[in-house]
Design a protein around this nucleic acid. Structure first.
Length: 498
RNA sequence: GGCGACGUCGCCAAGUGGUAAGGCAGAGGCCUGCAAAGCCUCCAUCCCCGGUUCGAAUCCGGGCGUCGCCUCCA
């Protein structure tokens, strides 16, 4: 089976053949750290985390580089507004970004260069571009001459002349051509600056990624990714800079993630319709947010809403319940006579088929929505088996069920969606002791013994058909976030995460 | 105005030539003392029109609509 992916350069799905067998080098544009990231930013980072995880699952050794842009106009502006230095703004929000990625469960990059730590190589690339006739100096600024690079526009599918007639490009008299962009900007008083052959200044945004990717990975590297809004001009300019400077192709595959919308409109800081990631994570666990994102293909636009988060929560519970139930059953004796061999084999077959579908879907340009569909079907098959055989389960039955649950855990894990860890989840709240004292006459101080006493009291009450007393136990526990569910194998206790 | 993407059940969404996955919501049923969880059944012919084909949601043409990029933006 070959892995196929959609290459923005050429706009077609292609077989993925890495530069070096078994290894993948990828570079993803990181954030400009002038604020907390919003969930639209988070979507892109989750998409590329998915891609990375799947490549690793497929056995590739992945070099994953993501920059942090810690010097930029926006940072300078934010600093001025807050009355602090640009370096302080950058430091605050790069820490916040790293924490956000950790909270989301995004795997750490193998390298995470910062613009301010890469100034030397950036100056070198600008010098190379000037030497080769692709850039020119005006009053301490350096511009890239777009018309000097014949391939300009090949990534975004634009024609230079069309762009110029677009008339939305700001005219700067000092530029030879309105489309020329800054490689190096001279510093105004109070702005961060570094010494260069053209005077004190700072690098242009597009330059950073060209330099950091080449520095970490060499060119051409395999995959360059980012949000689709970066295709033009950011990535187009990167191609121009890097290929003009090195004379070699830059990135072999360009992958772009779809935008996250709110009310069918792109979420962005400039539109003011954004929701910060940290606020979402306060209300919903990271796996739920991930599940929501994964139910849409990474290249498609995704409409975000609280309703969808609620739906994703319900869907997530479906997986969690299935795994929890099977894990719980496997921890207890299974003296039943067993389901029919045919039933067991049928479930085993579903496991095998689902694994194959998962792989086929993910191999097809990382179709996580299709892959998730397969996993939901496996959950239904396992639940159905359970439902049909719950009173006769045998050890071999539990083995097959265990295989189904393990498959769900493993493959969701490949997608980065972690499930609550079965019975090793949160421990019982101390409140159960008080309830046990009140309802079951328990006098110790051990939560586990208190719970046993409560379950015993409830079983006795149910045997006596004393529903009020039985419900007092269940309702009292529910108030503490402890659920009691009656199953064919006895009452099952579930402690919620919070 | 230029370039591009998209339009599939109430909502979300996969499927790119062989007869519509999945999730959420809804209806009915089963299980339960009641619940919860779960199971079963039901629930679309794919924006419109025309064409190609034995056969199209899938290809082509024309509409209509939505969105993105063209300026900083994940």
């Amino acid at each position: 089976m070959t892995l196929r992916l959609y290459n923005s350069m050429g706009r077609t799905k292609e077989d993925f053949v890495p530069r070096e067998a078994g290894k993948v080098s990828m570079y993803i544009c990181g954030p400009t750290v002038y604020n907390h990231i919003h969930i639209g930013n988070a979507r892109t980072f989750l998409s590329f985390d998915l891609i990375r995880r799947y490549l690793e699952h497929r056995g590739f050794d992945v070099a994953f580089v993501q920059n942090i842009t810690d010097v930029d106009d926006k940072i300078i502006r934010a600093a001025a507004e807050a009355g602090v230095t640009a370096a302080e703004v950058a430091s605050t929000y790069s820490d916040a970004f790293l924490k956000a990625m950790a909270d989301l469960g995004v795997e750490k990059p193998t390298a995470q260069p910062r613009a301010t730590e890469t100034i030397g190589p950036m100056i070198e690339m600008v010098e190379r571009l000037i030497e080769r006739g692709h850039a020119y100096v005006v009053d301490g600024d350096v511009y890239f001459a777009v018309r000097s690079f014949t391939g300009y526009g090949k990534l975004s599918g634009r024609d230079i002349d069309d762009l110029e007639s677009g008339a939305r490009v700001g005219v700067d008299e000092r530029k030879n051509d309105p489309l020329d962009f800054a490689l190096w900007k001279s510093a105004k008083p109070g702005e961060p600056h570094w010494t260069s052959p053209w005077g004190e200044g700072r690098p242009g945004w597009h330059l950073e990624c060209s330099v950091m990717s080449e520095m970490e990975l060499g060119v051409p590297f395999d995959i360059h990714g980012g949000g689709s809004d970066l295709i033009f001009p950011h990535h187009e300019n990167e191609v121009a800079q890097s290929e003009a400077a090195t004379g070699k192709p830059f990135a072999r595959y360009w992958l772009h993630g779809g935008m996250l919308n709110i009310n069918a409109e792109k979420m962005s800081k400039s539109l003011g319709n954004f929701t910060l990631l940290k606020d979402v994570l306060e209300a919903y666990p990271a796996p739920v947010l991930r599940l929501l994102m994964l139910q849409t293909h990474y290249r498609s636009p995704l409409d975000f809403s609280t309703e969808r988060l609620e739906e994703a929560s319900t869907a997530y519970e479906r997986f969690a319940n299935m795994v929890r139930m099977i894990t719980w059953l496997r921890d207890r004796p299974a003296p039943g006579i067993g389901a029919g061999v045919a039933d067991r084999e049928a479930l085993q077959t579903v496991v095998t088929e689902v694994r194959a579908r998962f792989a086929a879907d993910m191999d097809d340009d990382f179709n996580s929505a299709g892959a998730l569909g397969a996993l939901f079907e496996l959950a239904r098959a396992a639940n159905g088996f359970l439902s049909a055989n719950e009173t006769v389960l045998s050890a071999p039955d539990l083995d097959v069920l265990g295989d189904a649950a393990a498959t769900v855990i493993e493959l969701l894990g490949v997608l980065g969606v972690d499930l609550p860890a079965g019975e090793t989840g949160p421990s019982l709240p101390v409140g159960v002791i008080a309830i046990a004292a009140e309802v079951a006459g328990y006098s110790g101080d051990d939560t586990s013994a208190a719970m046993d006493a409560l379950l015993e009291a409830r079983a006795a009450a149910r045997a006596d058909k004393d529903w009020a007393r039985a419900d007092a136990v269940r309702d009292g526990l529910a108030a503490l976030g402890v659920r009691v569910e009656d199953t064919a194998a006895g009452p099952r206790v579930i402690v919620s995460e919070n």
